[in-house]
């Protein structure tokens, strides 16, 4: 089944390249809201380590297709050529500071990252070794809160109030992003969430000892080889980790590891560390796809938000 999805995705991706229309996420299998992808996750307790050599299951629709254009060519579809290597910033410390010679996350080019729609990290993300699903190791209070949110059909999702979805959920909210690497910081601008930005401080500073809790946290980053490692703390409790309702509290620490394995792919390995809700840290891998030549647009979610009255959403749930 997954092979056929890959075939379809490959075929669509090729056609998409020829099409004048932008089809940012037509290369991803569509998500049916309220459907199976939403449900499940937040398993009680600490999972056993995976059996060695466990095979990848058919989960994570669409995510893994990005950057694997040559694979899975099947009947009736043209195999896409292997994607080009990722660009690197010039090796010029004066101009690029700590980012000199490092992978270029696209800020110098005309283009944007098409961010996937991940409603549930457990059912749609991958483990770091590529397997699926992700087992989310929940403490009892997490299971309780998660189940409440699912039973209420996620009506109280703070994203429905046009509030910023938080971290790493900015990269699961399907509006594009651009990343700009400056000598001592990296700037993410997001079309979604809505029209928000994050600064990742790359100047060697430490995380604050007593951060003011915010929606998107406080972030510092450094390079480990070609991997951008971002550590973030200082989150308020006004966000859900994903649309399915995985919870977090103020103790949340997020580690994001960004790589650009090829021209087309931004790989994000996000680790959630929150001892209030989870028995141990857990990691989810997702990808975003490069869209050359396309541009961010303005998205002011607060403009005409009419759904709250129909949903009966309540803040702080």
């Amino acid at each position: 089944m997954r092979r056929h999805i890959n075939t379809l995705v490959t075929g669509v991706a090729v056609l998409g390249g020829l099409s004048l229309l932008s089809i940012p996420a037509a290369a991803q299998a569509p998500v049916q809201q309220g459907g199976p992808d939403y449900l499940g996750g937040c398993v009680a307790g600490t999972p056993d380590p995976p059996a060695p050599g466990a095979a990848a299951r058919g989960g994570g629709q669409g995510n893994q297709a990005a950057g694997r254009g040559g694979r899975g060519a099947g009947r009736g579809a043209t195999a896409a050529p292997a994607p080009a290597a990722a660009p690197r910033l010039p090796d010029n410390k004066e101009a690029y500071g700590v980012n000199a010679g490092k992978p270029d996350f696209g800020g110098l080019a005309k283009g944007m990252w098409n961010v996937p729609y991940i409603v549930n990290m457990a059912t749609q993300g991958r483990n770091a070794d590529g397997t699926a699903p992700v087992v989310v190791p929940c403490k009892p209070q997490a299971v309780k809160l998660f189940q409440e949110r699912q039973d209420n059909k996620m009506k109280d999702d703070p994203e429905g109030f046009c509030l910023p979805p938080g971290v790493p959920r900015m990269m699961y909210t399907p509006y594009p992003t651009e990343i700009f690497q400056m000598p001592d910081r990296i700037l993410f601008i997001y079309e979604g969430g809505a029209h928000v930005w994050r600064i990742i401080w790359m100047d060697g500073r430490e995380l604050p000892k007593d951060p003011n809790p915010t929606f998107l946290g406080y972030s510092v980053g450094h390079w480990e080889g070609d991997t951008l490692v971002v550590n973030s703390i200082g989150f308020n409790t006004e966000t859900w980790l994903d649309a399915a309702g995985h919870p977090h509290g103020e103790q949340l620490k997020v580690t994001e590891k960004f790589t650009r394995p090829n021209m087309n792919t931004l790989r994000l390995e996000a680790t959630i560390d929150d001892p209030e809700y989870y028995t141990q840290p857990w990691t989810v891998v997702t990808t975003a796809t490069w869209r050359p030549g396309q541009e961010l647009m303005e998205y002011i979610c607060q403009e005409n938000n009419r759904d709250l009255g129909h949903i009966g959403a309540v803040r702080g749930k």
Binding site: V12, L15, G16, S19, L21, I23, P24, A25, A26, Q28, P30, V31, Q32, Q33, G34, Y38, Y117, N152, K153, M154, K155, D157, E159, G160, C162, P174, Y175, A194, A243, C301, N305, D307, L308, H310, I311, A313
Partner: peptide
């Protein structure tokens, strides 16, 4: 069909409303 369609781009839960 996919060429003319987009993924779900909701900012809220579809299932809660529809």
């Amino acid at each position: 069909l996919l060429l003319a369609s987009m993924p779900a781009l909701a900012h809220h839960s579809f299932a809660a409303e529809y």
